[in-house]
Simulated assay, not measured.
Amino acid sequence: MTVGRVVLIRAVNVGGAKLPMARLREIAAELGATEVTTYIASGNLLCTPPGDGAAFDRALEQAVLDEFGFFREAIGREPAELAAALAAYPFGDAPHGHIYFLTGEPDAAAAEAFCARDFGNGERLQVVGSDLHLDYPGGAGATKLTPAKIAKGLGVTGTGRNLRTVAKLIELAR
């Protein structure tokens, strides 16, 4: 099975924002998507949406808000875009590497200033297009680099996945 889109939903099944993956699959199908599947319970949806992928992402956000009462960004990428992001990862085979998929491309000056900041645990950051590449040498659990700081510093929100998850999503999409 090949799918046309991987949709990453920010911050579900943490902090009280419960979104059952079985229901997410049903919602996607109700919105007209085919080849619908999910990977682990953290908001990773793989599907072939009808028509425009960005419109599907917005419809998915609205459907989750309508049914569950919380808004979460749905950040869609084509499998080739995920593969390009993984290939562009600038920090080698970092054991705690992540890619933070952004809702848009941040301002270049803001991205440069943000990536030059010291967050206290040796984090390395680099923005490539609409993706923030991260290396957490002490592990993601030890960082003070929060989603709120990323959103404020870059002017766009997003959601992160570790490199293993990104690689698995690419494999599943193909």
Rank of each mutant, 00 (worst) to 15 (best):
T143D: 10
L8K: 14
L19M: 14
G129L: 01
A33G: 06
A74K: 08
G155V: 01
T34Y: 09
A29V: 11
P137L: 03
E78A: 15
V128H: 12
D131L: 01
L134A: 07
M1N: 12
A173W: 11
E123Y: 14
E81Q: 14
D57Q: 03
A11L: 10
N44Q: 02
P147W: 09
I170M: 07
G160I: 07
D66R: 13
G53T: 04
H96L: 05
F119L: 05
P95T: 05
A29Y: 08
G15S: 14
I99E: 02
T38E: 05
A83R: 14
L163Y: 01
G153Q: 10
R174Q: 12
A113G: 14
D57Y: 10
R161K: 00
H133N: 03
K168R: 11
A54I: 04
A80S: 09
V36L: 12
L19K: 13
N121F: 11
N121K: 15
A17H: 15
V36S: 13
V3E: 00
V12C: 14
G129V: 01
V6Y: 06
R25D: 05
T103K: 12
E61H: 08
Y100V: 02
K152D: 14
L82R: 01
G138R: 14
G120W: 02
I170C: 05
A111G: 10
G15R: 13
T143L: 05
P137E: 01
L65Q: 10
I9H: 02
A84R: 08
L154G: 05
G104K: 04
L154P: 06
K18C: 08
A33C: 08
D52V: 02
G76Y: 09
A140S: 15
D118A: 11
